[in-house]
Design a binder for these strands. Structure first.
Length: 462
RNA sequence: GGUGGCGUAGCCAAGUGGUAAGGCAAGGGAUUGCAAAUCCCUCACCCCCGGUUCAAAUCCGGGCGCCACCUCCA
């Protein structure tokens, strides 16, 4: 498998350190507000990786963090509460950041299931790993990589020479660049030092620590939790493009300063989901959520296909037109696997060739565009020749273990539908097309679409 | 100012040295009671200018345009 690595900035061979077993950590949601589609691009990419590894026959241990601490201030809670009726209620019942965090976490799982994103093996919450974080910070203070100042603890960036390797933002470059943009704090030895533990009485969530009451800095949770569940060194760490700097840069510095070992062997970051040429951001106010799109009539699988249809690293423009396109593509796939065909000669040649090309495409830095093209070409071939349809359908189902865009097979129609279909058939026989079309429209209203084929009338759910 | 990335048809997009995959949309035709589905056909001088090469969308140089990050937004 070949995969782009953000750290070395090139596509390189990916293989788990323990043969056949991938250990992967995905940066997960910050649960103070319902995630928008941009967030899900990162999770869908992680899901695609996990499913691809499993296709290759590897075992995967996947861990995704839930960031439920570190960012909630009164303002954030008030802000988050403004966008949803449930939240408004919570506001009226008295604000409780814990409650909001759990609620938003629930939405996250709801949305990701809609997008057919598989369950990770663990979803550790930051608030449940405070002791691990404190232990790690203590170790950093003890070995000189961090210092306490007035209830705060900072990581000393100067103590970690390769700081900046992931993002290109080395200390010198940062100095040369945004002078004045970095918050100057008198208790920091260098303006680039970042917080491991913070003291702020205004903050809603607080814990006791050797440095007094406070709360952990953002980056330390991932270092602590990934280490706990995946070890000092693990195979793959993923996230959105904004995680590269500062989050992942800081994680590397912290983790390696504690363990003295390489932190992560391969870094994967997806590209931005853009909206009108701009990134989709929690702060921009232009947000599309999964339920909002479902409400507009898109299936979760449509949205999923939209996210996976193009290469994970390229910027992806969000436009409803592209969701429509994804829906049309899915229709073609679903029609193909449900198509009634006269029995054709068995032929596994086309499907076997497609299987090999499909796998090769995914192994080539997750080239989903190519993988989808392979599937399209296979369908065209089978439609044309009439041979190998069963083998092709079987392979499509196989490929769908990675893509997860096909519909489930239709269940049996109920008696009422069967009765109407029979009535329509009788009407058609007597050439009463007005009546037969009326029945077809009636069924369509109930979500049942009829297809007249040479083998008789078929139906499917719309 | 620093850092990372992008520019291929109406739209999305693959392709990183050998003469432009695939899809969506659109148009024409076949089939159908009408539809649906399916099939056939049509649809690109790869942002610009130089250079290297027998050969460049692909490599090099220079432009132009666009996006993002620069301490807690996936």
């Amino acid at each position: 498998m070949r995969l782009y690595d953000t750290l070395t900035r090139r596509v390189k061979e990916f293989a788990p350190r323990e043969p056949g077993h991938v250990r992967m950590y995905n940066c997960g949601p910050t649960v103070y507000r319902r995630n928008h589609l941009g967030n899900y691009r990162a999770y869908a990419t992680a899901d695609l990786l996990r499913r691809t590894f499993e296709l290759l026959g590897w075992r995967v241990t996947q861990v995704m963090n839930i960031t439920d601490v570190g960012h909630l201030t009164e303002d954030d809670v008030a802000d988050a509460a403004g966008e949803d009726k449930l939240q408004k209620e919570a506001q009226q019942r008295k604000l409780d950041p814990w409650q909001i965090a759990r609620e938003v976490e629930g939405w996250f799982h709801e949305d990701r299931r809609t997008l057919r994103i598989l369950d990770a093996h663990r979803y550790p919450r930051a608030t449940e790993h405070i002791p691990e974080m404190i232990a790690m910070i203590e170790a950093l203070v003890a070995n000189g990589h961090a210092y306490a100042a007035d209830g705060n603890v900072y990581f000393s960036v100067g103590s970690f020479p390769s700081y900046g390797a992931l993002s290109g933002n080395t200390v010198e470059k940062l100095d040369a660049g945004a002078s004045g943009r970095v918050e100057e704090r008198s208790d920091k030895r260098s303006p680039h030092d970042f917080a491991l533990w913070k003291h702020d009485p205004k903050h809603l969530m607080q814990w006791d620590s050797p440095w007094g009451r406070g709360f952990p800095g953002w980056h330390i949770e991932c270092s602590a939790m990934s280490r706990k569940y995946l070890g000092d060194t693990f195979d793959l760490h993923t996230g959105g493009p904004d995680n590269i700097f500062p989050h992942h840069e800081c994680e590397i510095a912290q983790s390696e300063s504690v363990t003295g070992k390489p932190f992560v062997r391969h870094w994967v970051h997806c590209g931005w989901l853009t909206l009108g040429g701009e990134k989709m951001s929690k702060r921009a106010g232009k947000i599309h959520t999964v339920p909002e799109l479902v409400e507009m009539g898109y299936a979760g699988a449509d949205i999923r296909l939209f996210l996976l249809k193009q290469h994970y690293r390229a910027p992806l423009p969000f436009r409803l037109e592209l969701l429509d396109e994804a829906r049309e593509i899915r229709k073609r796939f679903n029609n193909f696997i449900r198509q009634e065909r006269p029995p054709g000669p068995p032929d596994s040649e086309a499907a076997d060739a497609a299987r090999a090309r499909f796998r090769a495409a995914l192994e080539d830095d997750l080239n989903t565009s190519e993988a989808l093209a392979v599937l399209h070409e296979l369908m065209t071939t089978v439609n044309r020749t009439g041979a190998g349809a069963d083998e092709a359908v079987r392979f499509l189902r196989e490929a769908d273990r990675v893509l997860a865009i096909l519909d489930e097979p239709d269940e049996a129609p109920d008696a009422e539908i069967e009765r109407l279909m029979a009535e329509r058939e009788a009407a058609r026989r007597s050439r009463d097309f007005k009546r037969s079309d009326a029945i077809r429209d009636e069924l369509l209203k109930r979500g049942i679409e009829l297809l007249d084929t040479p083998q008789g009338t078929r139906w499917r759910r719309k």
